[in-house]
């Protein structure tokens, strides 16, 4: 049976997401309510997550550090004004992505461009090609995992930021389509379109990657 459609597997993944979301919201509520130690709890819970999001969006450590600090300050200055207590996580990602986009205007962040479906759908290459997952790579597992990970990082850097941010929110941070739309203040169909094109672009960049000794 296809594992990704296995109801038990989907339920476990949903449970994990819900538990993580509840813990996130508890920390954000503590900040909003001005609880002692809330600042430290926020940094502990979100610091690395915000930094890594900033790193992937800006590609520069200095910009990612600024994104982290700008986000921290914005959260403290604005969280008390947030009316919808149920949207704390979405609101946080909106702050982080705005901080990233504002860096983009000031640094050498890649310019915005559109990805056309025609250039991403398989053309001359055979359709069945796509990356091989490390667990299928046998004894060269670890070497291949590193190579795949490096190529993925490079392919991600080549994605236009408007697509990269959607891929980051949906596939890395595991926000839902609706949450991503709210965080980025774009429509649900737009999120779906950008996510699909982002995945197609990554697929295309990694299509010929194979463990050593195998050929595409």
């Amino acid at each position: 049976m296809d594992e990704s459609r296995n109801p038990q597997s989907l339920a476990m993944s949903a449970e994990r997401r819900i538990a993580r979301r509840q813990e996130d919201e508890a920390v954000l509520r503590a900040v909003r309510d001005g609880e002692p130690r809330a600042f430290d709890r926020f940094v502990e819970r979100f610091g690395q997550r915000i930094y890594s999001f900033g790193m992937r969006m800006c590609n520069q450590q200095e910009d990612a550090e600024d994104v982290f600090q700008d986000t921290l300050i914005a959260v403290y200055r604005k969280l008390s004004t947030l009316r919808d207590a149920g949207a704390l996580t979405t609101w946080l990602y909106r702050i982080v992505s705005n901080a990233c986009m504002s860096r983009r205007r000031r640094s050498k962040f890649a310019p915005a461009r559109e990805l056309s479906l025609e250039e991403l759908l398989p053309g001359s290459e055979p359709l069945e090609e796509g990356p091989v997952m490390p667990e299928e790579a046998g004894p060269v597992h670890e070497v291949y995992r590193r190579e795949l990970s490096e190529k993925l990082e490079a392919a991600l850097r080549d994605l236009p930021p408007d697509y990269r941010v959607v891929w980051m929110m949906r596939d890395v941070e595991e926000l839902s389509t609706q949450e991503t739309a709210e965080a980025l203040q774009i429509s649900v169909p737009n999120v779906k379109m950008r996510l699909h094109r982002a995945r197609l672009a990554l697929r295309k960049s990694l299509a010929h990657l194979r463990p050593q000794g195998e050929h595409a």
């Binding site: 450590q61 069945e128 993925l152």
Partner: peptide, 21 residues
């Protein structure tokens, strides 16, 4: 097969190490 490759690309997100400060 195209669907399978797209699913693998989605799952690759979990392979990325988080850059840490």
């Amino acid at each position: 097969k195209f669907v399978e490759s797209l699913r693998r690309v989605r799952d690759l997100a979990h392979l990325l190490p988080r850059p840490e400060l």
